[in-house]
């Protein structure tokens, strides 16, 4: 077994897969890649099943030394990577030789990038998944973000590059500027009077510094629920838009608390969830209401596009 040595970990680099499902009744949210679209494509570029364990980097990437040859691919936000000081192209598979070092710097647009290694990282699954759940220190590499000197195992591969899916359109990954997030009605939409709903969908919101895999606090106009709107704590969905006491939205993300007591005005549609993973502090967001039927057909279109990206160059 070959090892990947962490020379510099980056801001928050974790092992992820597509999540740990089926444990919500124990209070465990699914976790998994913050931008699963880029993650899946990255794995396909590396010649892996879409859910193979890979590294997720956040805002500032890391530096990694390969003990043995490998076939790797970088996907997601562009971290201006270099291999032994030469530019390293993202969205394609690259042969790495024994002893080479791959260095990611900071990304200028988006927030998360993926480093996928052919054969996948060898990470013992916890409750069926390799994904790191930082809040509960579970899964991934010792339940935490990587540190300098960590050694991650992979199977050394020397043989040729797999078929290359085409690069996805940027708009699909990032969702434009301002970032458009389409939402359906949340379970407590009727807590909010029509003028509050109108304000919510007409306003630009800004991603604050409180941004994590658990959730993102947004700044912008306060949206106020009707008086005496009280609810008891209930289960929450990935991508729910909670309105906190101060009237500002909180986007619940991959490591969200599994229950919440704030009203949920809306919920980001499945086809746009991966864009939350590319939001960075300062980004502008606009919410746009859609019907459930639209949400499902947009998801089908997106899945069809992802499949076609894989076939064009095969």
């Amino acid at each position: 077994m070959a090892r990947l040595r962490v020379v510099r970990p980056g801001l928050q680099t974790t092992v992820q897969d597509l999540g740990r499902y089926g444990f919500a009744h124990f209070g465990i949210s699914a976790s998994g890649a913050a931008d699963p679209v880029s993650f899946r494509l990255g794995n396909r570029l590396a010649g892996n099943p879409e859910g193979s364990p890979a590294l997720e980097m956040t805002l500032v990437g890391g530096e990694f030394e390969f003990e043995e040859p490998a076939v790797v691919a970088a996907a997601g936000a562009d971290f201006a990577a270099t291999m032994d000081r030469s530019p390293f192209p993202p969205w394609t598979s690259v042969q790495v030789e024994k002893g080479q070092t791959l260095c990611f710097s900071a990304c200028r647009r988006g927030a998360r990038g993926y480093l996928c290694i052919r054969g996948g990282l060898r990470i013992p699954p916890v409750l069926g998944s390799a994904s790191t759940h930082l809040f509960s220190a579970m899964g991934g590499y010792q339940g935490r973000a990587l540190k300098k000197g960590d050694l991650l195992e992979y199977a050394p591969v020397r043989t040729g590059a797999p078929p290359q899916p085409a690069r996805p359109p940027e708009s699909m990954i990032f969702g434009g500027n301002p970032v458009r997030l389409r939402v359906t009605a949340g379970p407590q939409l009727d807590f909010f009077p029509p003028e509050a709903r109108a304000l919510f969908s007409a306003s630009l919101y800004q991603v604050s510094e409180e941004f994590s895999r658990m959730g993102l606090r947004l700044g912008g106009p306060a949206v106020t629920a009707r008086e005496r709107s009280e609810m008891v704590t209930e289960g929450v969905s990935l991508g729910a838009v909670q309105i906190a006491g101060n009237g500002r939205p909180i986007l619940l993300f991959v490591e969200h608390q599994t229950t919440g007591g704030y009203p949920k005005i809306a919920n980001v549609i499945s086809a746009d969830l991966h864009r939350i993973g590319q939001l960075r502090p300062g980004d502008q967001v606009r919410f746009e209401f859609a019907t459930l039927e639209d949400a499902w057909s947009l998801l089908q279109e997106q899945e069809a596009l992802l499949r076609s990206l894989g076939q064009e160059d095969a």
């Binding site: 499902y21 919500a24 008891v232 704590t233 209930e234 289960g235 929450v236 229950t259």
Partner: peptide, 12 residues
């Protein structure tokens, strides 16, 4: 996943 709470169950 299934998330039970006080008076509701969320089916994801």
């Amino acid at each position: 996943s299934l998330h039970p709470a006080y008076n509701s169950l969320l089916v994801s």
